[in-house]
């Protein structure tokens, strides 16, 4: 038998599904029922004509587990396509966060300065608070949130990762 690779890696998986009632419950139920991790999950309709939704899941596991996750997703009846964006060629990933920071004086100025460095936008401002909008990969968002902590971080709301393959091909054309 080939030696079992035990390294646990994070994978971003894109799933194209029929946008029908219960489809998200099926996907989440699969992860819960079989003990897989969900690190992040986003879902929204992407084609109104065909009633398709795209789910992006960030999960982690050994190569054998991740292959299992893909196979299990693939056998759900309303699933059209499963792609492991981490493995199937280059892809881009983005996440959006809304970050509320409250403070006055030097801390307030400092938070604005850092936001500028990170190219975060100010969406809302009062005399003692900002709401920043920041877009980037997960690492950048984590770094930004960490820097805001000592400056009066109040609330964070994040979308979770969305991802797409680079190049001209679509998810549906891709070979499984």
């Amino acid at each position: 038998m080939t030696p079992v690779e035990e390294t646990i890696n994070s994978h971003t998986i894109a799933v194209l599904v029929d946008n029908e009632p219960g489809v998200l419950a099926r996907v989440i139920g699969l992860f819960a029922g079989r003990g897989y991790n969900i690190e992040s999950l986003t879902v929204a309709e992407v084609s109104q004509d065909e009633k398709l939704s795209r789910i992006t899941i960030v999960t982690s596991g050994t190569p054998m587990i991740v292959a299992q996750i893909k196979a299990q997703l693939g056998r759900l009846v309303p699933v059209h396509k499963v792609s492991d964006l981490t493995l199937d060629g280059p892809s881009v990933e983005r996440e959006l966060a809304l970050v509320k920071v409250a403070g006055t004086g030097e801390k307030r100025v400092e938070s604005l300065r850092i936001a500028d460095i990170f190219r975060a936008r100010v969406l809302d401002s009062t005399n003692e608070s900002f709401v920043f909008e920041i877009i980037g990969d997960t690492g950048k968002l984590n770094a930004f949130v960490d820097l805001m902590k000592p400056l009066g971080l109040v609330d964070v709301s994040r979308t979770g990762v969305v991802a797409i393959a680079r190049g001209a091909g679509s998810l549906e054309d891709q070979k499984n």
């Binding site: 080939t2 079992v4 196979a71 299990q72 693939g74």
Partner: peptide, 23 residues
């Protein structure tokens, strides 16, 4: 079955390599 090469025929892709790694 520690010393065997394994062939697995199954209609369900999720049965492959679920418990035992096959060649």
């Amino acid at each position: 079955s520690p010393n065997s090469k394994k062939i697995h025929i199954d209609i369900d892709p999720s049965s492959i390599n679920k418990n035992v790694r096959v060649d």
